[in-house]
Write a protein that binds this DNA or RNA. Structure first.
Lengths: 336, 336
DNA sequence: CTGTTAGCGCTTTCAT
DNA sequence: ATGAAAGCGCTAACAG
């Protein structure tokens, strides 16, 4: 039946449920004889422990809750891969909630994890940090990727989008770009806003461009395509810093199709280093986050936090994106 | 504290836990007055129901267990996306177990879902169908993607890899390829074996090639690179059917880098239609599965099976991959 | 070493 | 309409 309970096992083995439980869980204080009889009974009944019941009793679920926003495929799979791998090697399961909606829905998703997880991994760039902090269960160990949150059991890993953006622009300038445009991300996305801010500052200080060109975007490929049309019409832009890779790719493809040469006519740098970036022609230069590594690191911190309930130290961790130079922006024989 | 229980709420509202429960769950037999008092108490205490406890009591977790093999990123994210989307709109959560190991580990992962999920979604190509069938919990509604399994509560969605392979080869032949090679997948992967079988049969019947060339592979990009070297050395091969897209891409890139023209010198068709296929140059022709759709369909069937415990009908469902012609194999002005 | 007894937090008869 | 009590399946004191 597959539905045998520990009581059935105990009965069949002729012992109490307590002994059965001990035997099954490998407690030392069980006579080899009983242990064997319980094991036999369990096997005979095809017994599988009911983990839900066990968690209720032990206050431990060996499960990590993961709440992610509606991510683009590449980014999503990478971060999940990192999380999953790290969790898996620690014998932890993943309860996943991918968000397609607003802040309220996110809050609901977080609540729905109550009593089913030992800790929470949240990534929610579009929700403002304060709303997020309020939605987080007070007592539950949580690691937020993206926004910076504080609180007793809550910590965060933040990406230094501002610095990354500055470095991207600086690289383009070093490649000889004199007029650099930016394709921005969603207006309600914290990461995107920081990247845009970094761009503006860098364009100002490096190129003396007080009012640099910024195209609106939404992280989707199509936004890059549209920016490309504007760039083609403009004829003066010779560099593009895109707030993420997909828009950069859309832009590059369109530029190339129109007969422009990337990087000679227009050099392009993206952000994220999604796997696709390496496969387009030319390969896309980008600010690499080590997405999978980020997910894995988040799990590590979460596990630490779960295992040391009193350790209140551990401030936010800062991740600085690394410039990865590829064909889309390499004009001179830059080694890397 | 975020740790208030229903008892706390009941006490604060001055009612019994039973009434609190009824009020919280919107049962009709509760006086508006009590309902309000309970609601107030809950809000004041920041009460969040403990879903683990609720499932134990109701025998319902509103959670779907998902067990996947170690998939390549693109494929993985697509299938999860499909599953997640379908589950999400039904208010179901996903308990994820990504497998990195062998059959025994897969069986363990499946067992670990006991008592935490209402149904199981399993994809496990490398494990043989029989072992898989044995590992599945008897009573739990399950949908297997890939292998064909039977049993009372178990059903499956299978991909017609054989037909897909035949169609790919047929297309290459129609494009004028006379000597078509195949890059095979892992020897322990059921899907891969079927694709290879389809290739052999088609090569035999369409080209009269009794001993067609088959390169060993493992679904990784590098295997495609190696096959490409052999193809370059061979000088007679003018068509390639790769058992998946990534190997096809690795092959194509290497061929192109060596100065060969794809599709003129060598035409290539892959399998899966991962998102990257559209972004390489030329874009990769492939046998499209509608990966996300597959995941979504699997959820649908699983939900049906969960909600109709007695409906034993529903045999395996067959999915036929569709040929998607792109630049890597279009030699003549084929419309599509 | 083993059995008895309480729970974990919630839902649900069964009375009242 | 409400409360008392039983129970979901398991673990963990506490005695013996």
């Amino acid at each position: 039946m597959g539905t045998a309970t520990i009581r059935d096992v105990a009965r069949k083995a002729g012992v109490s449920v307590a002994s059965a439980s001990r035997a099954l869980n490998g407690h030392r204080s069980v006579t080899p004889a009983t242990r064997a009889r319980v094991a036999d009974a369990a096997r005979a009944l095809d017994y599988v422990p009911h983990l839900g019941a066990r968690s209720l009793s032990t206050q431990r679920s060996n499960t990590l809750g993961v709440v992610l926003p509606d991510l683009f495929g590449e980014f999503f799979s990478e971060i999940i891969r990192g999380i999953d791998y790290a969790a898996h090697r620690r014998g932890l399961q993943i309860l996943l909630s991918n968000m397609h909606g607003d802040a309220e829905e996110t809050a609901a998703a977080i609540r729905a994890m109550r009593g089913r997880v030992d800790g929470l991994l949240v990534m929610s760039p579009q929700i403002d940090a304060e709303a997020l902090a309020n939605a987080l269960p007070r007592g539950l160990p949580t690691v937020v990727m993206g926004s910076r949150v504080g609180g007793p059991r809550h910590t965060s890993i933040v990406i230094d989008n501002y610095e990354g953006a500055r470095e991207a622009v600086s690289h383009l300038a070093a490649q000889g770009c004199r007029r650099i445009a930016h394709i921005a991300g969603p207006a309600d996305n914290a990461d995107a806003l920081e990247r845009t801010r970094g761009f503006r500052d860098a364009a100002g200080s490096l190129l003396g461009d007080a009012a640099p060109i910024v195209f609106a975007g939404d992280f989707g490929e199509q936004a890059g395509v549209e920016a490309a049309h504007a760039i083609i019409a403009d004829r003066t832009i010779d560099g593009v810093f895109s707030a993420n890779d997909m828009m950069g790719i859309g832009c590059m493809v369109t530029l190339t199709a129109a007969g422009l040469d990337v990087p000679r006519d227009v050099a392009i740098v993206g952000f994220d280093d999604v796997p696709i970036a390496r496969y387009v022609t030319p390969a896309l230069s980008t600010m690499g986050l080590g997405i999978a590594a980020l997910g894995g690191r988040a799990v590590e911190r979460l596990v630490e936090s779960i295992e040391q309930p009193d350790d209140t130290s551990a401030g936010p961790e800062r991740l600085v994106p690394q410039l990865i130079v590829r064909g889309s922006s390499r004009r001179r024989g830059t080694a890397e």
